[in-house]
């Protein structure tokens, strides 16, 4: 029971890192980013590239992989999303485009690195054992990194000009525009932060398990559940939602076959949408 809870917190931290970006992008760009999970995968593979193929140490490789993923999302905004925005494309056009992008990213990864599992170059790590409860060092690292990033995001949102502008844009787009906020600039920040957080989540997922081309796709649906649970556009809600989804998925293995884990998050997702579609922290 406590063991499942611990697994749940680790999984939940990864889901939360994905959910923050998805939620912000959903809100500020009106885009249901079906490619968001694939950015997580991309972050993990780019880190793998620097770490294993180019022999850099893991921390440096992760930093490069995560930054590069963020930069790619900015380039994609320039060549795709901005053009669609300027044409006045609505949310359904954007959603279908995102599905196309997801197919492109995932399959370029398969093309480059093959369809089988890969892993980082890691020293063999010892599991910590507290009276029969196992905690892996990568699990501890995951929770610590996720918590630090969330604190950092909170500071950005509350203390910096960019963060305040983001919140203003999220509250009321038209009002934010007429007060002279540079919307294009904020959108780039949203992509950069959202996607690099996703990449961190992808790298941490790779540390805890393996790296696979379809990992982001399978993370995406629990992430949607976390975003909707927390209320779209609410990064704090996304964090809590991620933890709730992660813990419920792992706890469900006590009574259900573990292959139903992801189905559990769908059921939560569907229930929230039907009962309180604005999310548990959202206001109508």
């Amino acid at each position: 029971m406590i063991q499942q809870l611990i697994f749940g917190i680790v999984t939940g931290s990864i889901i939360a890192l994905g959910a923050i970006g998805l939620s912000m992008i959903y809100d500020i760009l009106d885009l249901v980013n079906f490619a968001h999970g694939d950015f997580m995968t991309l972050g993990a593979y780019l880190t793998f590239l620097f770490n294993v193929s180019l022999n850099l140490n893991l921390i440096l490789a992760a930093a490069l992989g995560i930054i590069l993923t963020g930069v790619i999302s900015l380039i994609l905004d320039k060549i795709m999303w901005k053009k669609l925005r300027d044409k006045g494309a609505g949310s359904i056009t954007l959603l279908i485009t995102a599905i196309g992008l997801a197919l492109v990213i995932r399959n370029l990864i398969v093309f480059q690195w093959g369809g089988s599992n890969v892993g980082f170059d890691l020293p063999l790590s010892q599991n910590l054992n507290f009276h029969g409860i196992m905690i892996s060092t990568s699990g501890v690292l995951t929770v610590v990194v996720a918590a630090l990033l969330m604190i950092a995001l909170d500071l950005i949102l509350r203390k910096t000009k960019i963060g305040k502008a983001m919140r203003a844009l999220s509250d009321n787009k038209n009002l934010a525009r007429i007060t002279g906020i540079n919307v294009d600039n904020i959108i780039l920040w949203t992509w950069g932060i959202g996607t690099s957080f996703a990449a961190v989540g992808g790298v941490l997922y790779g540390l805890n398990t393996v790296i696979r081309p379809d990992m982001g796709w399978f993370l995406l649906l629990p992430i949607f559940a976390a975003v909707i649970l927390g209320g779209i556009g609410n990064p704090y809600g996304a964090m809590v939602g991620g933890l709730i989804i992660g813990i419920s998925q792992e706890m469900s293995t006590i009574i259900l076959p573990s292959s139903y884990k992801i189905a559990v998050s769908f059921v939560i997702l569907i229930l929230v949408m039907l009962i309180k579609p604005e999310g548990i922290f959202g206001e109508k």
């Binding site: 795709m80 053009k83 669609l84 044409k87 494309a89 056009t93 279908i96 485009t97 599905i99 196309g100 992008l101 997801a102 197919l103 492109v104 995932r106 399959n107 370029l108 398969v110 093309f111 093959g114 369809g115």
Partner: peptide, 24 residues
């Protein structure tokens, strides 16, 4: 054939993006 399968899906994804951008 794995590579070819992947490239095929890349082309399909690009087709979807291009359609949405230029000929929805």
């Amino acid at each position: 054939s794995t590579d070819l399968g992947a490239l095929r899906m890349v082309i399909i994804g690009l087709l979807l993006i291009v359609l949405m951008m230029y000929k929805p």
